[in-house]
Design a protein around this nucleic acid. Structure first.
Length: 293
DNA sequence: TACCAGGAAATCG
DNA sequence: CGATTTCATGGT
């Protein structure tokens, strides 16, 4: 797929990107640090950079960046060189339910996010509402992350790296409203600093082996491990099962009160190597439908 | 007020 | 082993 790229005054204007909608991509549950502005653009920090993105007709405008950064960083981060048309065709098969879910989330792209940030973010996510997860992560960033810049009068901070978190007490971490997960964050940060697990090498392992390693971290269980694999390691056969996905699978495909194992086996058989994409379409669709409330 | 939230760890049988 | 209970905390 080819697009045209123009640069002017710290703005990069791109035409020709298909299968990419900002709200679908930023609100399908894979990320926590992108926020909608009043003009329906989105502002966020990723890769240590602060940008704002807006869609205007056929154009997508990346503000506060350069053409070089777009080519070197944002194409990869937004997964823009992947053919989502082919993915959607494969996931949809002849399933009317999946076709509806895909239509609703037609503009989803699975971001290539930082392993460490996703590790800590999803440890924080366990058993909490998304609004509160975002609140905790922002508190951690503004407290311990580097100041990146200001946009629309709002200050932005990078996600703190392991060096910036290590040595903080459980009580200090708790000040970011993490509750009992503070201990998991402290312990996991220590494991990273001691190089007990090389988080940035795990993507070179098979999904099964990388998952096994992730499960050694404090606060990482099956669901969080699958999120890390899918959202930061290109492991698209991972299928994270949270309360929403479990409910939507029970609603459409399986008996009520299905076990996690049943859901997992069914998803692997039905979606195979594309399970992660299917999961995102289903999660986003389930939340749209409000299934289970 | 009671219940629930993108679950995991500890404990039980 | 698999199944059940406990764990902070804020929103509704």
């Amino acid at each position: 797929m080819r697009y045209t790229i123009k640069e002017q005054h710290r703005k990069v204007i791109v035409e020709g990107i298909i299968d990419f909608e900002l709200s679908d991509t930023f609100e399908c549950g894979q990320c926590f640090r992108w926020n909608r502005e009043e003009d329906d653009s989105f502002t966020g920090v990723a890769k240590g950079k602060l940008i704002n993105i807006q869609k205007k007709g056929k154009q997508i405008i990346f503000d506060n960046t350069t053409k070089e950064e777009f080519l070197n960083t944002w194409i990869d981060y937004f997964d823009l060189d992947r053919d989502y048309g082919r993915i959607k065709k494969n996931v949809a098969q002849n399933d009317a339910i999946m076709e509806k879910a895909i239509l609703h989330g037609r503009g989803i792209r699975i971001l290539n996010q930082d392993e460490w940030e996703i590790l800590i973010s999803f440890i924080i996510s366990s058993n909490r509402a998304i609004k509160l997860i975002k609140k905790s992560i922002e508190a951690l960033c503004s407290r311990y992350g580097k100041f990146i810049g200001t946009y629309n009068g709002k200050k932005y901070y990078d996600f703190p790296n392991p060096e910036e978190l290590v040595g903080k007490s459980i009580e200090e971490i708790k000040a970011s409203h993490t509750g009992y997960r503070a201990k998991y964050i402290v312990d996991t940060t220590k494991m990273i600093m001691e190089k007990q697990i090389e988080i940035y090498d795990l993507k070179n392992l098979s999904t099964t082996d990388a998952r096994k390693e992730l499960l050694r971290f404090s606060g990482v269980g099956p669901k969080v491990a699958d999120c890390i694999l899918l959202f930061s390691m290109n492991k698209y056969d991972a299928f994270p099962i949270d309360v929403w996905v479990k409910r939507v699978m029970e609603y459409f495909y399986l008996p009520d009160a299905a076990t996690l194992k049943q859901v997992q086996v069914f998803a692997k058989k039905k979606f195979g190597d594309y399970a992660g994409f299917a999961q995102q379409y289903l999660f986003y669709y389930a939340r749209e439908l409000g299934i289970g409330k």
